Computed example of a mutant assay.
Amino acid sequence: MSTLEVRSLHKAFGGLDVISNLNLTVPPGQRRAVIGPNGAGKTTFLNLITGWLTPTSGAVLIDGQAVATHPEEVTHAGIARSFQRNLLLEDLTVVENLRVACQAFHPCRRVFWRSKREFGDLFEQARQAAEWMHLTDILEVPVTHLSYGQKRQLEVALALCAKPKILLMDEPAAGTSPQERARLIDLINRLPKDLTILLVEHDMDVVFATCDIITVLSYGKVLATGTRRDIQEDPAVIEAYLGRRHARG
């Protein structure tokens, strides 16, 4: 179990501050949501944590140790991410997608003369990730034949192939039907309790059903952090983002 900490994180593009002096701590095993209106800086925030962007200043730490700003080194530090847009290999089967993901994190992946026996644990890792996301009955199905909801489940399973300590999820419910969304909520809640989750999501039903603590961003700054009730009753959050539908009456 690991603590994710963000200290004084700042990202500017030219004269535009997208993330400004952002501080956040996610303790081990917590399910934390980051929400906010479009343009609040949520995806930029994830890109900074995972090394896809280099911060202008500030640092990302795991258990007090600074994480290098390179995606591969971030993964080795224990952080994995599922993406908002589809990055699947559509012509391969579910299990082949998972095997490729597992092999990407294998220590022998760049040694091309290794025997297949060197990778004997890959299918077991792939099946474990499939089991977590309830994909075991469609392992041999080409991805192109999956429903959209199943593809979203597979995206999360691919991130789990890295055996992360901290899982970042970028709008996993985007574009799903109500039935698919309910299934995804159930699957997220069934993930190992020692897995720390940082969830960026627009769907407040998903946020409230899966996360213990919610952080609200507005123009790259933290507007509020608290429990579901705290956030629902915060006048500034209601005004900036939630509106009255999700506020407590």
Rank of each mutant, 00 (worst) to 15 (best):
L48Q: 03
L154G: 00
R81Y: 06
V206N: 05
L199Y: 01
H10P: 11
T176H: 01
E171D: 01
G29M: 08
P192F: 11
E201P: 02
H246R: 10
T210Q: 01
L217R: 05
C211V: 07
T136W: 02
L187R: 08
V237S: 04
A224M: 05
G226Q: 07
G51D: 11
Q150G: 04
T54K: 14
I62L: 14
M204T: 08
I19K: 14
L223E: 06
L146K: 09
R117V: 05
T50S: 14
G78N: 13
E171R: 00
K193C: 12
A126S: 11
F45P: 08
I185H: 06
L122I: 10
K165C: 08
M1W: 06
P27E: 13
R229D: 13
G249D: 15
A129S: 12
L199Q: 02
D230Q: 09
N97I: 09
G120L: 06
T196Y: 10
L187S: 08
T215D: 02
K193G: 13
E124R: 13
L139G: 07
V94C: 03
V111Q: 15
P37V: 14
V222E: 04
A40D: 12
S2V: 10
D137K: 14
G226A: 11
F105R: 15
R7T: 07
N23M: 10
E233V: 04
A157Y: 00
Y241N: 13
H134R: 12
T215L: 03
E180A: 01
Q179G: 00
M1H: 10
I197D: 01
R248E: 13
H106Q: 07
L87W: 08
V95I: 08
L135D: 10
G36C: 05
I231C: 14
E90I: 09
T225S: 14
D194P: 00
I231S: 10
A157L: 06
Q153R: 03
A77C: 05
N21I: 03
P28L: 12
Q65P: 03
R183M: 09
S218D: 12
Q232K: 06
V111Y: 03
L98A: 02
L135Q: 04
W52V: 14
E155S: 03
F105T: 15
T210F: 06
T93C: 01
R248W: 02
V207A: 00
A224E: 09
L92K: 12
F83S: 07
K42N: 09
D63I: 00
F119E: 02
A174N: 06
P71D: 00
R183G: 09
D137H: 12
F119V: 01
E239H: 13
V222G: 05
H145P: 04
L9Q: 02
G15T: 10
H76F: 14
T144Q: 15
A182R: 12
C108N: 15
D137Q: 12
V94Y: 00
A162K: 05
N47M: 11
Q232T: 07
G226K: 10
W113P: 01
Q179V: 11
D17L: 13
N38F: 11
A224I: 09
P172T: 01
L158D: 06
N21D: 15
C108Q: 15
A236D: 13
D234K: 14
L88N: 07
G15M: 08
V200N: 02
